[in-house]
Design a protein around this nucleic acid. Sequence first.
DNA 1: CCGGATGTGTCAGTGACTGTCAATCATTGC
DNA 2: GCAATGATTGACAGTCACTGACACATCCGG
Lengths: 185, 185
Amino acid sequence: MQSRIARAAEELFIAKGFEETTVDEIAAAVGMSQRSFFRYFASKDEVVLDNLERLGEELAETLEARPAEEPEWDSLRRSFDPVVERLLDPAMREHDKALHRIVDTSPRLFAAYLGRLDRLQRSLAEHLVARAAGSGREPDELVLRAMVGCAFACLHAAMLQSAAEPEDFGRSLDRAMAALRPAQV
Amino acid sequence: MQSRIARAAEELFIAKGFEETTVDEIAAAVGMSQRSFFRYFASKDEVVLDNLERLGEELAETLEARPAEEPEWDSLRRSFDPVVERLLDPAMREHDKALHRIVDTSPRLFAAYLGRLDRLQRSLAEHLVARAAGSGREPDELVLRAMVGCAFACLHAAMLQSAAEPEDFGRSLDRAMAALRPAQV
DNA sequence: CCGGATGTGTCAGTGACTGTCAATCATTGC
DNA sequence: GCAATGATTGACAGTCACTGACACATCCGG
């Protein structure tokens, strides 16, 4: 049921804009009351941001599967592979493109998306800290946090750069991460 | 009048939380109607985020004053001097500390803050692109965008690290930016 | 003094979201 | 099959941030 609502909502968002689409309209589109919509989604934002949550989980898993002795910068690049991969698949690419178009129409939703990204970054940084500690290395929390932020800045810039051609995302990401690779790594 | 409202609002936010404070309460605290509150501020968020706007202008001016031939990474570090300086001033430090405490109590406001930061980053990146072009260099927009994002990631990590001791912010910032300095700069 | 400009408060409303409650549906046990 | 119980749903009233409209008050210049 939740995915049915999400699909109907996404269509409406694309057709008329995120802010211009009311929850009543979404609910009506799937034949339920507005009250019930909120039984399936915590908020209107969640319809869109749940996708990020799922992707974030994939990134976290990928990072956790990297070898502990690998340089963090490389591990972070590898953790972005799920993003690169989904943009190589035509169906997923179209969906992601649509999601970004929705987010782009609403500064408020975009901000909420950034808030989510920040939370993801925090959890990835925590993992790297724990990883370093588990390897008998003294983790520098400040630097690891900043590094995760840097890696996401590269991801973000590559997203922006390849908005028109999502297949180019992987190349842009690699270029950005090569150029911004920290000197001490 | 606007700053009087802002002061009253900030006190209420600190006392009972951002989300827990209603616009009616703020308006009553300064002896006006809720409708008039919205004549002074575009939204409740603006009370807090206007501070960031002003600081962002300072950062942009500082960056614009840097020499065009200076490495971008160094220019970005210098552009953060206004932040460092205000945290060295006890009165400003207390105010900034209070603002961060307010933002920390509301994920929604924090997200809005991140949205603002993103906009600031975009404008700084644009400036760097224009600067490079004006110096006869071919600007790499992707890399410059990512670099600005990296610099802000360092700023953000340093903020987090020195939340309890804001006087340490400058040192943390320098440490993070030294560690994350791109190899090719 | 009068008219125009400006500022204010009241009011009703929108839309996201919430708690409550009655009605309905589905399941289970006798 | 029926009654009891649990789950689901929609209706409803309300909160809160925010908005447009409008009447009223104040100020200033001719």
